[in-house]
Design a protein around this nucleic acid. Structure first.
Lengths: 218, 218
DNA sequence: CAAAAAAGAACTAAAGTAGAACAAATTTTG
DNA sequence: CAAAATTTGTTCTACTTTAGTTCTTTTTTG
């Protein structure tokens, strides 16, 4: 069919002739296409004529005729097709499964050697999510058991009362209820057998907020 | 008719020309079809021209034109498309969402007015599943909280210790731990505040076994 | 192992860009 | 109206970039 420049020129000629009833001059075309010399236009016109998109009367001024245009789909249709394709692709989203939490390793450190967990698109459409396997019983009173899968929204923003993934001293990641007290951060377990950890705020980094718990039996 | 590669290339050319009005270059086609060398494209184009699917001006850049499209897809393409479609369909399965349990209504009775819950295919591939919203706190010690979503495998077969959906007297459906004792069925809550219900076996009907618990925060 | 497909490299050609000289057409004007 | 002026189109050269062709070698595959 055409090269980019040929296409651009053809569309310009078509537009001008439709609008004004007469062909553009070489200099007008030169400007429109963005060249500094007319010779380029001449070459382009020759190419267009060779491909039978225009006809021109040689040695006549402003004597071009658009014979045909490349047939293409309207933008709207193309975009609609893309949307539909996306809707299908979005049926599930694979979120990274980072392994166990409370394993004493920052989450970034294990971010590569991951498997993936397919999640329904609706559940994880807004934001970055990842999954962790819960280890230990420190949250049983919140209905979070050893072996449960936690779906975490990756964000440093959390409110008091949220259950969060907290990284302490860049070392140890745990899932706890968040409670900020002045310059301290309290990591509150949901199990009377455990104690609240009260830490200086700068020692704690929030790596995400609990969005869902999934537990599989058998 | 056409080989897989020829078909793929033809469709690519068609798509690009329709979308942009310009022909793709050899390198673009090379990438699209998945070759590492342009010579292969040349061969494919020659074949396509021989079969009169395209016209090309030799020794001109981006001067291809699609003359016609094939009526039939190569078998390989059909199979590939099916595979991809299946992969997407399998990505999630919609399982029926029957509403609340412990609502005192047999599950069949509400089986029609349902919404659906998309579940990753892997989780619900073997068997018939449905979802229920858990109501009440009778199972909190098993980490099942009020408002949790229970994914149930529809089956009358359950083992001692399984958490099941039990229908009592064809009336009242509850989620409890199962314990069979001789001719009795015990429905064991997981909350010290509740009492075990000991029922004659014929009064109890198992409607499913708990497969998963899903809980969403916020 | 032979035919087909693909890769790779070398080569050739076209496209794009620019500038200038020139020729033909068109318009202006004396 | 005809010469002059001006606009417009053509052609040539030169150079860079992009693209297409062809041939040989390698790999794949039936």
């Amino acid at each position: 069919m055409l090269t980019e420049k040929q296409y651009k020129l053809l569309m310009f000629i078509n537009k001008i002739t439709k609008e004004t009833g007469c062909s553009p001059s070489f200099d007008e075309m030169r400007t429109a296409v963005g060249l500094k010399s007319k010779s380029g236009i001449h070459a382009l016109l020759t190419a267009l004529e060779e491909r039978e998109f225009i006809k021109k009367l040689p040695h006549k001024a402003r004597a071009l005729e658009v014979v045909r245009l490349p047939k293409f789909k309207p933008r709207a249709i193309i975009e609609e097709e893309k949307k539909r394709e996306n809707a299908l692709l979005n049926a599930t989203v694979n979120i990274p499964f980072y392994g166990k939490i409370a394993a004493g390793v920052p989450i970034e450190a294990i971010a590569d050697e991951t498997s993936f967990l397919p999640m329904p698109f609706e559940m994880v459409s807004n934001g970055q999510f990842y999954a962790l396997k819960v280890e230990g019983d420190s949250m049983v009173d919140a209905g979070i058991l050893d072996g449960d899968t936690a779906i975490i929204r990756q964000t440093p923003m959390a409110n008091n009362g949220d259950i969060v993934v907290a990284l302490v001293d860049n070392q140890e990641a745990t899932l706890k209820k968040l409670q900020r007290k002045e310059k301290e951060v309290w990591l509150v377990p949901c199990n009377k057998a455990y104690e609240v950890r009260k830490l200086r705020a700068d020692r704690v980094q929030i790596q995400g907020v609990l969005k869902s718990i999934i537990r599989n039996y058998h």
